[in-house]
Design a protein around this nucleic acid. Structure first.
Length: 443
RNA sequence: GUGGCUGUAGCUCAGUUGGCAGAGCACCGGGUUGUGGUCCCGGGUGUCGGGGGUUCAAAUCCCCUCAGUCACCCCA
């Protein structure tokens, strides 16, 4: 077999990176559960028509086909890998509505797949950590204020830079555009979304070309998009533009509530950023995008929003609000920036040195005692010279080497970083807490 | 999916007009009858990303392809 090569967009980390990923997932999970989100996993595939219901992402969906399927057998071809966790969840809610109690809050941490051209922080297979809250018929607004608080807690518990959640409300933009007399708010939204990339002049051009805006309407759209505030002062700034529409009033009131809740529970976490639009078209209210402070060029590592029409069948309707942490993107980018590392590449805390092959059984017993006490231990692979065995530990970052006492003498344990070696009993010896497990560090 | 840039040892890289694949670090073996890091001796560990072509001769020139990355697109 010739040497295998990587597959574009399907990253595989080395053990240190995977250790960090598992740690991060564990922390995120425990924060989600602290807020009462229930665990959930959905299958990897969905019927294609479910996935394609929301348009644009369609060309990025991987479809399924049995290798041996005859050409005319299309039985599996109506299945595709999910590209996010919200759409499968909406399907799941409809399917299990009778067994769930509402409002229903769940978290889901799974791989998703998108057929995009990969680059740094963009993969074809990646891990998302998603929370959603859905209710039957109507979803109280206050959940839109809760979501960023959960995320703020989840992300600030991680060894990553500070985050800033940018918040906007689709009703503000749409109400403003309609109040302005524009008839295609979606097109206007898409144009404004490019503000950071192409600049105000190009956006104005786009607005006139694609959204049918006049020059003054385009200017007004830009003035709205420029508004940004760490508090509720955006409201008067919007009012000062003199545009009126009931939807605008509604959106502003909601955005004020989100910002007030954030100010009370997590000062500095949220910024009202009226240029935030979001690509996915199913959002109908609050939308979120999250940046790492100091790493803004990474783009959003966590986004979501309120959706009213994603899960509905007949006259049943389950509006929801949710957000998704791009775990793979977040970590891939931080790894690339050398901004995350781990104290040692293996979990092992103690290497039991092997004096002779005959003593392996005794060494295994010592290791077993240490393991029973929660200390990750492995026995040296061979009875090489002690110098070799110490190097074995050193190369792996294993902090302690355990030496069985010869001729009934006391065992000793050596901290190979300091070189200090002390008498030790496997029943009682305990390493400092910092050495017990791999530590995630941020240089 | 479209276009640009990049690809030589584990890492960082050098390699002239096409002429026997190199350096530093890392790594491996040995030197101290068994407790490492310093020191000494020895070792190149490589499908030059892969395949094809031109040529007496290709890391070098041409074509295709894969991967990484950037922009577009989209978005975690």
């Amino acid at each position: 077999m010739s040497k295998p090569t990587p597959l574009s967009g399907f990253p595989e980390w080395l053990p240190p990176q995977r250790a960090i990923e598992q740690y991060v997932v564990d922390r995120i999970r425990s924060t989600f559960e602290l807020y009462g989100f229930a665990p959930l996993e959905t299958r990897a595939v969905e019927p294609l028509d479910q996935l394609l219901r929301k348009g644009e992402t369609s060309k990025e969906v991987y479809v399924l086909r049995r290798l041996q399927a005859a050409a005319e057998d299309a039985s599996d071809e109506s299945l595709g890998l999910h590209f996010d966790l919200t759409v499968p969840f909406a399907r799941y809610v409809l399917e299990n509505a009778g067994k769930l109690t509402f409002p229903f809050r769940r978290y889901q941490i799974q791989k998703v797949w998108r057929g995009e051209r990969p680059q740094e922080g963009r993969y074809r297979e990646f891990l998302q950590a998603d929370i959603d809250i859905v209710d039957r018929d109507t979803l109280p607004f206050h959940y839109e204020a809760e979501i960023p608080l959960v995320i703020g807690d989840a992300l600030s518990a991680l060894p990553i830079p500070k985050v800033r959640i940018q918040v906007n409300n689709r009703k503000v933009c749409e109400g403003f555009y309609r109040g302005l007399g524009l008839t295609d708010p979606e097109a206007a939204l898409r144009a404004v979304d490019k503000l950071d990339k192409i600049g105000p002049d190009k956006v104005a051009e786009l607005l006139t070309e694609t959204a049918g805006a006049t020059e003054s309407q385009a200017k007004a759209c830009l003035r709205l998009a420029e508004i940004s505030a760490p508090d509720t002062s955006f409201e008067s700034a919007v009012r000062a533009l003199g545009v009126e529409h009931p939807l605008l009033d509604e959106g502003l009131a909601e955005l004020v509530l989100v910002m007030q809740a954030a100010a009370e529970h997590a000062p500095g976490l949220c910024v009202a950023e009226l240029k935030i639009a979001r690509g996915l078209d199913y959002y109908t209210g609050t939308v979120y995008e999250t940046q790492l402070v100091g790493f803004e060029r990474f783009g959003s590592i966590c986004s979501g929003g309120r959706y009213d029409n994603l899960a509905s069948a007949g006259n049943e309707r389950f509006p929801g609000v949710g957000i998704s942490i791009g775990v793979s993107r977040l970590l891939g980018l931080l790894f690339g920036a050398d901004a995350l590392s781990v104290s040692r590449p293996v979990p092992t805390c103690v290497l039991v040195a092997l004096p002779t092959d005959e003593q392996r059984a005794a060494c295994d017993r010592t290791a077993a005692v240490l393991r029973r006490r929660g200390i990750a231990t492995e026995v040296s692979p061979s009875a090489a010279k002690y110098g070799k065995q110490i190097r074995f530990a050193e190369r792996r970052g294993i902090p302690y080497v355990w030496f069985p006492g010869s001729d009934g003498a006391q065992d000793t344990v050596k901290d190979i970083r300091s070189g200090t070696q002390i008498d030790a009993d496997p029943m009682t010896w305990t390493p400092p807490a910092a050495d017990l497990r791999q530590q995630i560090t941020r240089p």
